[in-house]
Design a protein around this nucleic acid. Structure first.
Lengths: 143, 143
DNA sequence: GTATTTGCAAATACTTTGCAAAACC
DNA sequence: GGTTTTGCAAAGTATTTGCAAATAC
């Protein structure tokens, strides 16, 4: 199933409509693993639709997140970054170059249960972010 | 060692100065476990210094964080919340009432090492936030 | 044809900053 | 006394929103 069908399926459940902007935003986001900011997504989309507006990008990123097609990564930084991969996974970011990579989540499946036992909360979800130096930056002088 | 001495010790290492505002901000933050926002800290400090300014609160929260006396919790929300407890611990927040509680970190000490092995990063730190319903909200209708 | 979505620009909301006066050491 | 810090207000920055025109179904 290609991106367009995935989007159509989600959209038809509500009363949203399929638009070029919407599709291209999702499409571009699914193409990369760089976890771009809203501005970077905007620049990517601009190459396809010259006069797209920033507001449209923001509105659609939010909509796509509500539809469960995109993940907003917004912890600890001034601005959010977005991820077209909604499989369960964690992220690790380099403190020097801000590169972000994915980590499969499977290793720590029991975190929610452990936390529920420890706190009495009904735990719905959790987010983890790791910080450090990526392999490339480890060899270089600290900036 | 009381809060004033803790602050003095940290401050004397640099060329900062001890001020009433600085001390009261730290003092108020260390008194509570509610993880207040900058605005809430401002209101708390206002009760002690009527004409304290918002800018001073922000500046000092940042300074106190740089000194390692305060933790800024800023992931996933529009505004940061602050924690006067800098012992290693995670947080869990209620999706309904926004209450935040602490979780001791000891259970998952090996996370950094596991992640380093999995990604090749030199892992310096990590942050986890859990989401769910606190015991009080579990029984109530969903809002 | 009618409701949704877009582009544009202005508005929001949290946080930061410039500056003269005040406080600290 | 000289440097840091404060209060105030204005600026900054990421994001959201109002509205008329355009688009989707």
């Amino acid at each position: 199933m290609d991106t367009k069908d995935i989007l159509k399926n989600k959209i038809n459940a509500g009363r949203q409509r399929m638009t070029t902007q919407r599709l291209i935003i999702l499409d571009e986001l699914k193409k990369v693993t760089s976890h771009p900011s809203a501005y970077e997504v905007y620049r990517m989309v601009q190459r396809k639709i010259a006069n797209v507006s920033f507001g449209t990008v923001y509105r659609n990123l939010r909509l796509l997140e509500d539809l469960g097609l995109v993940q907003e990564l917004n912890y600890g930084k001034k601005f959010s970054r977005y991820d077209g991969n909604t499989d369960n996974h964690y992220h690790i970011s380099c403190e020097k170059c801000e590169r972000m990579d994915d980590i499969p989540i499977s290793i720590w499946k029991r975190l929610n249960k452990n936390t529920s036992n420890a706190t009495g909360y009904e735990v719905k979800a959790h987010r983890i972010e790791f910080y450090g130096l990526c392999p490339k930056c480890q060899g270089e002088k600290r900036g």
